[in-house]
Protein backbone atom coordinates (compact mmCIF):
# COMPACT_ATOMS: atom_id res chain seq x y z
CA UNK A 1 0.00 0.00 0.00
CA UNK A 2 1.31 3.41 -0.94
CA UNK A 3 1.74 6.30 1.46
CA UNK A 4 -0.94 8.98 1.15
CA UNK A 5 -0.43 11.70 -1.46
CA UNK A 6 -2.41 14.48 -3.09
CA UNK A 7 -3.21 14.04 -6.77
CA UNK A 8 -2.83 17.12 -8.95
CA UNK A 9 -3.81 17.30 -12.60
CA UNK A 10 -2.43 20.50 -14.14
CA UNK A 11 -3.88 21.93 -17.34
CA UNK A 12 -0.59 23.25 -18.70
CA UNK A 13 3.15 22.68 -18.44
CA UNK A 14 3.43 26.02 -16.59
CA UNK A 15 0.85 24.88 -14.03
CA UNK A 16 2.72 21.62 -13.59
CA UNK A 17 5.99 23.46 -12.89
CA UNK A 18 4.15 25.75 -10.47
CA UNK A 19 2.75 22.75 -8.58
CA UNK A 20 6.22 21.22 -8.29
CA UNK A 21 7.64 24.55 -7.07
CA UNK A 22 4.90 24.89 -4.45
CA UNK A 23 5.47 21.49 -2.86
CA UNK A 24 9.07 20.46 -2.33
CA UNK A 25 8.24 16.74 -2.10
CA UNK A 26 5.99 16.69 -5.17
CA UNK A 27 6.87 14.53 -8.18
CA UNK A 28 5.73 14.63 -11.79
CA UNK A 29 3.87 11.48 -12.87
CA UNK A 30 4.34 10.37 -16.48
CA UNK A 31 3.35 6.77 -17.33
CA UNK A 32 4.10 5.66 -13.78
CA UNK A 33 5.77 2.40 -14.76
CA UNK A 34 8.72 3.04 -12.43
CA UNK A 35 7.35 5.68 -10.04
CA UNK A 36 4.12 3.89 -9.07
CA UNK A 37 6.02 0.62 -8.59
CA UNK A 38 8.52 2.41 -6.35
CA UNK A 39 5.67 4.01 -4.38
CA UNK A 40 3.96 0.65 -3.87
CA UNK A 41 7.20 -0.69 -2.41
CA UNK A 42 7.42 2.50 -0.30
CA UNK A 43 10.76 3.30 -1.91
CA UNK A 44 9.28 6.67 -2.92
CA UNK A 45 6.86 8.79 -0.94
CA UNK A 46 5.99 12.01 -2.75
CA UNK A 47 3.46 14.25 -0.97
CA UNK A 48 1.94 15.27 -4.31
CA UNK A 49 1.76 13.56 -7.69
CA UNK A 50 1.55 16.01 -10.56
CA UNK A 51 -0.02 13.99 -13.37
CA UNK A 52 1.26 15.05 -16.80
CA UNK A 53 -1.11 12.63 -18.52
CA UNK A 54 -3.52 15.27 -19.79
CA UNK A 55 -0.90 17.59 -21.27
CA UNK A 56 -1.58 16.58 -24.87
CA UNK A 57 1.04 19.01 -26.15
CA UNK A 58 3.73 16.84 -24.58
CA UNK A 59 2.94 13.83 -26.79
CA UNK A 60 3.78 13.56 -30.46
CA UNK A 61 6.55 12.99 -32.98
CA UNK A 62 7.92 15.37 -35.60
CA UNK A 63 10.91 15.07 -37.90
CA UNK A 64 13.04 16.87 -40.47
CA UNK A 65 16.25 16.00 -42.35
CA UNK A 66 18.50 16.64 -39.37
CA UNK A 67 16.58 15.43 -36.36
CA UNK A 68 13.40 14.02 -34.93
CA UNK A 69 11.71 15.42 -31.86
CA UNK A 70 9.61 13.21 -29.62
CA UNK A 71 7.33 14.65 -26.94
CA UNK A 72 8.08 13.52 -23.39
CA UNK A 73 4.65 11.92 -22.88
CA UNK A 74 4.88 9.83 -26.07
CA UNK A 75 4.44 6.19 -25.13
CA UNK A 76 6.95 3.50 -26.09
CA UNK A 77 4.30 1.75 -28.23
CA UNK A 78 3.74 4.95 -30.22
CA UNK A 79 7.47 5.48 -30.82
CA UNK A 80 7.82 1.85 -31.92
CA UNK A 81 4.93 2.19 -34.40
CA UNK A 82 5.76 5.69 -35.69
CA UNK A 83 6.40 5.81 -39.46
CA UNK A 84 8.59 8.89 -38.88
CA UNK A 85 10.84 7.11 -36.37
CA UNK A 86 10.93 3.89 -38.37
CA UNK A 87 12.05 5.74 -41.47
CA UNK A 88 14.52 8.16 -39.84
CA UNK A 89 16.02 6.07 -37.02
CA UNK A 90 14.83 2.45 -37.25
CA UNK A 91 17.10 1.45 -34.34
CA UNK A 92 15.17 3.81 -32.07
CA UNK A 93 11.82 2.31 -33.11
CA UNK A 94 13.11 -1.21 -32.44
CA UNK A 95 14.55 -0.13 -29.07
CA UNK A 96 11.21 1.37 -28.01
CA UNK A 97 9.36 -1.75 -29.17
CA UNK A 98 11.51 -3.95 -26.98
CA UNK A 99 11.24 -2.07 -23.66
CA UNK A 100 9.54 -4.07 -20.90
CA UNK A 101 6.48 -5.83 -22.29
CA UNK A 102 3.63 -4.60 -24.47
CA UNK A 103 1.41 -3.66 -21.51
CA UNK A 104 4.26 -1.54 -20.15
CA UNK A 105 4.83 -0.02 -23.59
CA UNK A 106 1.19 1.13 -23.59
CA UNK A 107 1.85 3.27 -20.49
CA UNK A 108 5.57 4.02 -20.24
CA UNK A 109 6.86 7.25 -21.76
CA UNK A 110 10.11 8.59 -23.18
CA UNK A 111 10.20 11.53 -20.76
CA UNK A 112 9.54 9.34 -17.76
CA UNK A 113 12.35 6.97 -18.69
CA UNK A 114 14.84 9.76 -19.37
CA UNK A 115 14.00 11.71 -16.19
CA UNK A 116 14.13 8.55 -14.07
CA UNK A 117 17.59 7.67 -15.48
CA UNK A 118 17.43 4.04 -14.41
CA UNK A 119 21.00 2.75 -14.94
CA UNK A 120 19.64 -0.24 -16.91
CA UNK A 121 16.94 1.51 -18.96
CA UNK A 122 17.12 1.42 -22.77
CA UNK A 123 16.15 4.98 -23.72
CA UNK A 124 19.12 6.73 -22.05
CA UNK A 125 21.43 4.74 -24.37
CA UNK A 126 19.57 6.08 -27.42
CA UNK A 127 19.53 9.64 -26.08
CA UNK A 128 23.28 9.58 -25.43
CA UNK A 129 24.17 7.55 -28.53
CA UNK A 130 22.18 9.80 -30.85
CA UNK A 131 23.65 13.01 -29.38
CA UNK A 132 20.19 13.90 -28.16
CA UNK A 133 19.04 17.13 -26.62
CA UNK A 134 16.69 17.14 -23.65
CA UNK A 135 14.22 19.98 -24.01
CA UNK A 136 12.69 21.01 -20.70
CA UNK A 137 10.16 23.65 -19.69
CA UNK A 138 13.05 26.14 -19.44
CA UNK A 139 16.15 25.08 -21.37
CA UNK A 140 17.96 22.66 -23.68
CA UNK A 141 20.36 20.16 -22.12
CA UNK A 142 22.82 18.15 -24.21
CA UNK A 143 22.81 14.42 -23.50
CA UNK A 144 26.53 14.51 -22.58
CA UNK A 145 25.63 16.81 -19.66
CA UNK A 146 22.30 15.24 -18.70
CA UNK A 147 22.98 11.83 -17.14
CA UNK A 148 24.93 12.45 -13.94
CA UNK A 149 24.74 9.25 -11.90
CA UNK A 150 22.53 6.53 -10.48
CA UNK A 151 18.97 7.84 -11.07
CA UNK A 152 20.54 11.29 -11.17
CA UNK A 153 20.17 13.84 -13.97
CA UNK A 154 20.85 17.52 -14.56
CA UNK A 155 17.15 18.30 -13.99
CA UNK A 156 16.17 20.72 -11.22
CA UNK A 157 13.55 19.36 -8.80
CA UNK A 158 10.86 21.56 -10.36
CA UNK A 159 11.98 21.02 -13.97
CA UNK A 160 9.98 18.91 -16.42
CA UNK A 161 11.18 17.20 -19.59
CA UNK A 162 9.00 18.40 -22.48
CA UNK A 163 10.65 16.58 -25.40
CA UNK A 164 13.82 14.93 -26.61
CA UNK A 165 15.47 15.77 -29.91
CA UNK A 166 17.45 12.98 -31.56
CA UNK A 167 20.06 13.66 -34.25
CA UNK A 168 19.48 11.61 -37.39
CA UNK A 169 22.43 9.28 -37.88
CA UNK A 170 23.68 7.78 -41.14
CA UNK A 171 23.06 4.43 -39.45
CA UNK A 172 22.54 3.12 -35.96
CA UNK A 173 21.83 -0.04 -34.03
CA UNK A 174 20.91 -1.12 -30.51
CA UNK A 175 21.39 -4.49 -28.89
CA UNK A 176 20.76 -5.55 -25.35
CA UNK A 177 21.42 -8.65 -23.34
CA UNK A 178 18.31 -8.79 -21.17
CA UNK A 179 18.47 -9.62 -17.49
CA UNK A 180 16.99 -13.14 -17.26
CA UNK A 181 14.23 -12.06 -14.83
CA UNK A 182 13.62 -8.33 -15.11
CA UNK A 183 14.29 -8.07 -18.88
CA UNK A 184 16.06 -4.77 -18.22
CA UNK A 185 19.41 -4.49 -20.00
CA UNK A 186 22.14 -6.42 -18.25
CA UNK A 187 24.15 -4.65 -20.91
CA UNK A 188 22.72 -2.60 -23.77
CA UNK A 189 24.80 -0.84 -26.42
CA UNK A 190 23.63 1.86 -28.82
CA UNK A 191 25.96 2.60 -31.75
CA UNK A 192 25.45 5.47 -34.19
CA UNK A 193 27.49 6.66 -37.14
CA UNK A 194 26.92 10.23 -38.25
CA UNK A 195 29.17 10.23 -41.31
CA UNK A 196 32.76 9.13 -41.80
CA UNK A 197 34.78 9.21 -38.60
CA UNK A 198 31.97 10.32 -36.30
CA UNK A 199 30.72 7.43 -34.19
CA UNK A 200 29.04 7.44 -30.80
CA UNK A 201 28.70 4.37 -28.60
CA UNK A 202 26.49 4.55 -25.50
CA UNK A 203 26.32 1.76 -22.93
CA UNK A 204 23.47 1.12 -20.49
CA UNK A 205 23.07 -1.53 -17.78
CA UNK A 206 26.79 -2.03 -17.31
CA UNK A 207 27.63 0.82 -14.95
CA UNK A 208 26.00 3.13 -12.39
CA UNK A 209 24.77 5.30 -15.26
CA UNK A 210 24.67 5.29 -19.05
CA UNK A 211 28.09 6.20 -20.48
CA UNK A 212 30.03 6.54 -23.73
CA UNK A 213 32.71 3.98 -24.52
CA UNK A 214 35.65 5.94 -25.98
CA UNK A 215 37.71 2.97 -27.19
CA UNK A 216 34.81 1.51 -29.14
CA UNK A 217 34.05 4.93 -30.60
CA UNK A 218 37.65 5.42 -31.77
CA UNK A 219 37.91 1.93 -33.27
CA UNK A 220 34.53 2.11 -35.04
CA UNK A 221 35.31 5.60 -36.36
CA UNK A 222 38.17 4.02 -38.34
CA UNK A 223 36.16 1.06 -39.53
CA UNK A 224 32.47 0.51 -38.77
CA UNK A 225 32.35 -3.31 -38.69
CA UNK A 226 31.34 -5.95 -36.14
CA UNK A 227 34.82 -7.50 -36.24
CA UNK A 228 36.39 -4.23 -35.15
CA UNK A 229 33.89 -3.87 -32.27
CA UNK A 230 34.41 -7.37 -30.94
CA UNK A 231 38.20 -6.90 -30.97
CA UNK A 232 37.98 -3.96 -28.53
CA UNK A 233 38.82 -4.97 -24.94
CA UNK A 234 36.49 -2.99 -22.68
CA UNK A 235 37.72 -2.24 -19.15
CA UNK A 236 35.74 -3.72 -16.26
CA UNK A 237 36.75 -0.91 -13.94
CA UNK A 238 33.75 0.80 -12.35
CA UNK A 239 31.22 -1.59 -13.91
CA UNK A 240 28.42 -3.22 -11.93
CA UNK A 241 28.95 -6.60 -10.36
CA UNK A 242 25.98 -8.52 -8.99
CA UNK A 243 24.29 -11.91 -8.89
CA UNK A 244 23.41 -11.76 -12.58
CA UNK A 245 26.83 -10.80 -13.93
CA UNK A 246 30.33 -9.86 -12.78
CA UNK A 247 31.98 -6.65 -13.92
CA UNK A 248 34.31 -8.66 -16.17
CA UNK A 249 31.39 -10.44 -17.82
CA UNK A 250 29.61 -7.13 -18.36
CA UNK A 251 32.77 -5.66 -19.91
CA UNK A 252 32.91 -8.63 -22.27
CA UNK A 253 29.22 -8.21 -23.12
CA UNK A 254 29.77 -4.55 -24.03
CA UNK A 255 31.97 -5.42 -27.01
CA UNK A 256 29.75 -8.38 -27.97
CA UNK A 257 26.60 -6.23 -27.92
CA UNK A 258 28.46 -3.43 -29.74
CA UNK A 259 29.43 -5.89 -32.49
CA UNK A 260 25.84 -7.10 -32.82
CA UNK A 261 24.54 -3.53 -32.84
CA UNK A 262 26.97 -2.63 -35.65
CA UNK A 263 25.89 -5.72 -37.60
CA UNK A 264 22.25 -4.65 -37.16
CA UNK A 265 23.07 -1.08 -38.20
CA UNK A 266 24.63 -2.40 -41.43
CA UNK A 267 21.59 -4.57 -42.21
CA UNK A 268 18.55 -3.43 -40.21
CA UNK A 269 15.60 -5.76 -39.68
CA UNK A 270 12.28 -5.04 -38.05
CA UNK A 271 13.24 -6.93 -34.90
CA UNK A 272 16.18 -6.87 -32.53
Amino acid sequence: MMYEFAYVRPASLEDAVRALRMHSEAKPLAGGMSLLSAMKLRLAAPTHLVDLGRLDGLAGIAGNNQAITIGAMTRHADVAASPIVREAIPALAVLAGDIGDRQVRHRGTLGGSVANADPAACYPAAVLGLAGTIITDRRHIGSDDFFRGLYETALETDEIVAAVEFTRPARAGYMKFPHPASRFALVGVFVAEFGAGNVRVAVTGAGPRVFREARLEAALAKEFTPTVASAVAVSAEGLNSDRAASAEYRAHLVSVMAARAVAWALAPTSQS
Partner: peptide, 11 residues
Protein backbone atom coordinates in the same frame (compact mmCIF):
# COMPACT_ATOMS: atom_id res chain seq x y z
CA UNK B 1 -3.86 -3.71 -22.85
CA UNK B 2 -2.32 -2.39 -19.62
CA UNK B 3 -1.57 -3.74 -16.16
CA UNK B 4 -4.23 -2.31 -13.87
CA UNK B 5 -2.08 -2.83 -10.75
CA UNK B 6 0.38 -0.23 -12.00
CA UNK B 7 -2.08 2.53 -12.79
CA UNK B 8 -3.94 4.84 -10.44
CA UNK B 9 -7.70 4.98 -10.69
CA UNK B 10 -7.29 8.76 -11.00
CA UNK B 11 -5.22 8.26 -14.17
Amino acid sequence: AVKSCTMLTAQ
